[in-house]
Computed example of a mutant assay.
Amino acid sequence: MILITGATGTIGSEVLKLLVERGERVRAVTRSPDKLPPDLDVVRADFDDPDTLRLAMTGVDALFLLTAPAKPTPDHDLAALDAATRAGVGTVVKLSAIGTGETIGDRTVGGWHLAAERAVQDSGMAWTVLRPSSFASNFLRFAQPIAAGGPVPNLTGNARQGVVDPRDVAAVAVEALTTSDHKGQTYALTGPEALSVPEQAAILAAALGRAVETVDVPADAARADMLGHGMDASAVDAVLTGVEWARAGHNAVVTEDVAEVLGRPATSFATWVRDHLAAFR
């Protein structure tokens, strides 16, 4: 039995889909069971409720660990790991983020991920850590404004990043969950090329056959917008630390990890755009 946390999100839902297609026994953990098909093994659980986590782990062999707390903390990962080890789960695949543990000035990128990664590695389970780069699907946040002719907000200027298709991240996770070939590995998952936001916009524009503009967003304006939408201040600080790290050129990284795990090239941003073009029209 494979347990999937974050089962209704961008990565978790794709991991769930791929595992079901492969005929694996799966259980999905969510706080919103109504968002998943009724024929699935779905458990309502909360990272802040140890009893629900304990029940969710019953009979589980492998855990896909994806947490997204409102505040940047490893506590949810630690709670899930505690429940998993008590239940005798043998394998854990942790979704982290590229750049975790690196520094920019006196700040650490993804400090909460780093603490969770260390706990995963010390858990006694067979482990794999996935550190994806910027998701191609981030552009979907602006699908409606783009469709209306508006610009794409750009926090990272001309800095390039190894933009990755979330479907590739999910496919790597499935391999790590279902085979023993990736124990003890930390994978930096990127697409096949490093792209800036303006370059991504140009690729989308070519597919749409019309201009797609970008507009630079200063850090202060981004901070005010995120706080104005109710985002926790510590989470805003964490996001902007990652933005500054990327703006400094530290995420202009392309690896072969996706290709080595999947035995095929990583998916290009142009291919991702083609497959999601309807969302921008």
Rank of each mutant, 00 (worst) to 15 (best):
G162L: 05
G230F: 03
E102C: 10
F135A: 04
G101T: 06
A115F: 07
I203A: 14
K71E: 15
D232Y: 14
L19E: 00
K183M: 04
R141L: 09
E244N: 12
V15I: 13
A194F: 04
T178A: 03
D77Q: 11
F139D: 11
L277P: 03
A219T: 15
T100P: 11
A115M: 12
R54I: 13
P37F: 06
A252I: 08
G110C: 04
R247C: 02
I203Y: 05
P69N: 07
E213N: 08
G101P: 05
A176Y: 02
A270R: 13
P33Q: 06
E14W: 11
A252E: 13
F280H: 07
A83R: 06
V164G: 14
P192N: 12
A266F: 08
H76N: 15
V172D: 01
A56K: 00
A143N: 07
A224G: 10
A246G: 11
G149N: 10
L16T: 12
A270H: 13
T271W: 09
A235F: 05
R107K: 13
E244R: 15
V129R: 05
V163E: 14
G228F: 02
R25E: 15
S134H: 09
D122V: 12
A148W: 06
T91D: 11
R131H: 04
V261C: 04
T85V: 15
V43H: 09
G242F: 01
L95C: 06
Q161G: 13
A235Q: 11
Q185W: 08
R86F: 07
D75T: 10
L262I: 03
D237A: 09
A62C: 05
D122F: 08
R223A: 11
D257F: 14
F135Q: 00
M231D: 11
G263W: 00
A70Q: 13
G230C: 08
A170W: 07
L63K: 04
A235S: 13
W127K: 10
T10G: 06
A7S: 15
S234Y: 11
R223F: 12
V258L: 02
A207H: 11
A202Y: 02
R141E: 14
A116G: 11
F269S: 03
A206N: 05
T103G: 06
D220L: 03
L204D: 02
Q121K: 09
Q121C: 09
